[in-house]
Design a protein around this nucleic acid. Structure first.
Lengths: 358, 358
DNA sequence: CCGTTCTTTTGGATCGATCCAATCCCAACC
DNA sequence: GGTTGGGATTGGATCGATCCAAAAGAACGG
């Protein structure tokens, strides 16, 4: 460790320059890894930096260059590991480029979301990754554009009227993930399938519902059994109870996400029933816990960390080139077969005949 | 919304000053809510700010005042909702004071931890809240002190040699929480109790172990059944299996945290056993899910959000007054009785006699 | 030896707020 | 009427890096 400055005075470029026998400008170039400086000079300056224990003052650099090497990252609910993972993904990519992130959890509050964005502007962040809170209006995206603050939406997105640039977006293909789930359940012989969860109207909900409806209709099945519930374990447990008591209960339940699916499995357990035997249950997200329930949960893997990484890369591209066209990155979402949907693909064939007899 | 600046030029204090017919200095005072300015002037300036759509440039302010109104927040694992909650707590308090936080998940990597702290110093944060990664040496705390960067440790803490100022710390009273758990289990008649989890040597582990050992010894019981395992669901499930197969299996298991406890319950379920009936199981943290397992989990509530809030307040005090004495805030941790430990306090009395006959 | 080109280095101006000592204003008091 | 005092306001210097145009130095051919 270099010896700390003996006095309380903070060292500046000038001190380093004096010690290395060059000008301030040269030191500045070295610190920014400019190819302009000669190797010999570079080493000398580096030596001086280490010897003095000089600390770069990013604030001063910002003022002059109006580049802060910081970004804002807004997620709706940090205590949901799904979003936390995505935040980690963003951070890993940004960090490698020398950026640091302001992270905040909006808790689905539009007011907090906007306040934070305003503050990010004051801070002069180079861009933001935004998971829009439920109910975010297109006006917000326009506002950011007005500010010329680069923004990438992640996991959810605000839809702008056609004709307007939609803006960058990175997310998972919820729609086809749910479609694939329906296909699989139908193949297993299920005809009456419920979709559980998603009271909030945002793109991630609409995509799932669309996938569900399309796939059900394709098979001529009733696509109306969609239950709007909060996205909690508790809601899952409660919903499944009333559902099973109804006059025409389903034989399978596709849940909005794994959390709801865990709740459904809990609800079944409380009634002495079991997922996979008495009701096929599936989720979305493939949280680490999904493989560890009893029975393990069939679910759609949406790889939040990857989504985070892609959002970050997208934002970096946008910062480098603000005028480029909007880009949408939709990562594939694959169905991960486990026991909670009754039977895995390999074992499905013999059962299909049996199911047809129902 | 104020009309955006018509040209690309960024507005400065000077523009606002001109419009309001005052000097730059006065505008600056208004923006900082100084009591020095007359009410009439203040309103006029505020009007000009709104009319022009002026955006405060915090970077410039920082350079001059060397106060950034930012802090760094380092947690070990953001995808653990426990830490995420604590981060939210920190953020809420800081936000109310006009601060924003750089948040990073170190993933228990000492190298990442140090790199991030260095970057925080360059950014000029006013302070950091640190959950030290496992294996963090006292040298790190000394380094921060050398940098005169205010630091509050949270949830875990590095122990410095006696005589040295220990530094600020906020956390939960794991020790007495675990002691209380032991007391309760003993009251229920358990004699052979295992402690599961905690391979990593940090203060939060040591405290739990100490609480366990003390309480067991106090009752003349064997305090040696401590199983070091990773802090995951999977580890909990695997550990309980081998434990039950051993020659002298325990009748109760106190788990490091709820995650491990969930794993243990899963392990029991896989063997057709049930927590609370075949083995008493308890956890620590009282995650939201703890109330929703089957059976619900008895656990020690540690209120991570509160710990976060306290850490933030502590940091604010330290920033305001760097030379004050170190402060330790240890929040009480209470045992929350649920069914997984076999029987709740109210129902315990009749069972005690029966237990004595074993 | 000079002109040309290319590489490397440089000093001064600049970014936009805050700090501070000085000034201004106006009422109150002797 | 002059002086004092306190509240309100101000102009210029300042924080520490980057930008830029220009200079210095090196290399080389004619």
């Amino acid at each position: 460790m270099p010896p700390s400055p003996p006095d309380r005075m903070r060292l500046t470029l000038k001190d380093v320059a004096a010690r290395a026998g060059v000008s301030r400008a040269t030191v500045s170039l070295v610190l920014r890894d400019s190819p302009l400086v000669a190797a010999e000079t570079r080493d000398r300056v580096r030596g001086a930096v280490d010897a003095l224990g000089y600390v770069y003052n990013r604030g001063a650099a910002t003022l002059r260059s109006s580049r802060t090497k910081t970004i804002g990252l807004l997620v709706t609910d940090l205590s949901n590991p799904f979003f936390a993972e995505m935040a980690i993904g963003v951070d890993r990519v940004m960090e490698a480029e020398g950026y640091v992130s302001f992270l905040v959890s909006t808790g689905e509050s539009l007011e907090r979301q906007e306040r934070f964005l305003r503050r990010m502007r004051e801070q002069g962040v180079d861009g933001v990754v935004l998971c829009p809170a439920t109910g975010t209006a297109p006006g917000l995206v326009r506002m950011l554009r007005e500010w010329s603050l680069p923004c990438v939406q992640a996991l959810r997105c605000v839809t702008l009227p056609p004709g307007e640039e939609p803006g960058d977006y990175a997310g998972a293909d919820y729609r086809s993930g749910v479609e694939e789930t329906v296909e699989h359940l139908v193949r297993l012989g299920h005809r009456r399938i419920a979709f559980i969860g998603g009271e909030l109207l945002h793109s991630a909900t609409r995509e799932r519902w669309a996938g569900f409806r399309d796939a059900m209709r394709r098979h001529g099945l009733d696509d109306g059994l969609i239950l709007r519930t909060p996205l909690t374990r508790r809601a899952g447990a409660e919903t499944i109870g009333s559902l099973l008591d109804s006059s025409d209960p389903p034989s399978a339940a596709i849940c909005f996400n794994d959390i709801v699916a865990f709740g459904v499995m809990l609800g079944l357990e409380r009634r002495g029933l079991r997922a996979g035997r008495d009701l096929a249950v599936t989720g979305v997200d493939d949280l680490p816990d999904a493989a560890l329930t009893e029975p393990p949960l069939t679910t759609v893997s949406t790889l939040p960390r990857l989504v985070g990484e892609e959002s970050a890369r997208l934002l970096l591209r946008r910062i480098a080139e603000p005028e480029r066209r909007s880009e949408r990155i939709v990562l594939p979402a694959r169905l991960v077969l486990r026991a909670s949907c009754g039977v895995t693909r390999q074992a499905a064939a013999p059962l299909l005949a049996q199911a047809a007899l129902r």
